[in-house]
């Protein structure tokens, strides 16, 4: 479960953590991904696991478009840049929820009989649910991929440089908007992966994103902004804390543990565990 939070948080780690842009519609990106996966299953009978790359591709386009249509302008604001980003993406989140309600109705949907759904696997006598295991695997791969991408490729360097100093970057011939549009696309594609995996074992409804979004923010901040590894560690910690809290407190209070740990960590280390910003 922890790695599942990690998986949802990877995309956010890129957009929010590395590019330093607030995206209040992250949960809604997840919701859209789950719906895409659901409809691919219903109309074309493609299992969520197989459709994951398709969903990721769809979300890549969506993320890049959102950047070009909205976020680009929000970042241009000289005054109150932070608030403009918060509220323009928050407005976008409301629109997306409204659109989902309009086209998909508020009904709860689920993908029945997927390859992963409801199956368990036994490893050394411990039964583990297959979808979560798959989610964990994908999460690890996604993090490893992102880490490699940020630290080993020209694009990753361009991305970090653009965040640090957009003006200087323009001088050496890097198009800020292209880099950030790709970054947003990539971040959204990672959310797409998470959504595709989750579609096979979670109910899908217009507000589903909201419940995961806050935890994703906490995960990224816990690990520290600007650190891919931090977000990964944050995901694992959040999962462990949630499991432990569920043992001690009633299930309705399980998130309290996560929030308390976040507060504790930032009180001791105001930049999160591995943050550089």
């Amino acid at each position: 479960m922890g790695l599942l939070y990690g998986l949802i948080a990877v995309g956010l780690a890129l957009i929010f953590g590395l590019m330093d842009v607030v995206n209040f519609a992250h949960g809604e990106f997840l919701m859209i991904a789950m719906y895409v996966s659901f409809f691919l299953f219903t109309f074309f009978a493609i299992d969520p696991l197989l459709s994951a790359p398709l969903v990721a591709a769809a979300l890549f386009v969506f993320g890049a478009v959102v950047y070009l249509l909205i976020v680009r302008f929000a970042m241009r604001a000289k005054a109150n840049a932070g608030m403009v980003q918060i509220f323009s993406t928050f407005g976008l989140a409301i629109v997306m929820r409204g659109l989902a309600q309009f086209f998909f109705t508020p009904d709860y949907r689920s993908v029945p009989h997927s390859w992963l759904g409801g199956k368990t696997i036994s490893i050394a006598g411990v039964f583990l649910p297959e979808p979560q295991l798959m989610g964990a695997l994908v999460a690890i791969l996604a993090f490893a991929g992102l880490y490699f991408f940020i630290h080993r490729t020209d694009f990753g360097r361009a991305l970090e440089a653009t965040r640090e100093d957009p003006g200087a970057v323009a001088l050496v011939g890097i198009d800020k908007n292209r880099v950030f549009a790709l970054g947003w696309g990539l971040g959204a594609a990672l959310v797409g992966l998470a959504g595709a995996i989750m579609a096979s074992f979670f109910y899908i409804y217009p507000d589903v994103g909201a419940s995961f979004a806050l935890i994703a923010y906490v995960t990224v901040a816990l690990g520290g902004f600007g650190s891919v590894f931090g977000a990964f560690a944050g995901g694992i910690i959040v999962g462990l804390v949630e499991a432990t809290t569920a043992l001690v407190l009633p299930p309705s209070l399980k998130s309290v543990g996560i929030y308390a740990v976040y507060l504790l960590v930032v009180f001791i280390r105001p930049r999160g565990l591995f943050g550089s910003m």
Partner: peptide, 12 residues
């Protein structure tokens, strides 16, 4: 959800 769409668009 039409109200949400209008409201959200205006905020953006």
């Amino acid at each position: 959800g039409v109200d949400l769409i209008v409201y959200g668009t205006l905020i953006v």
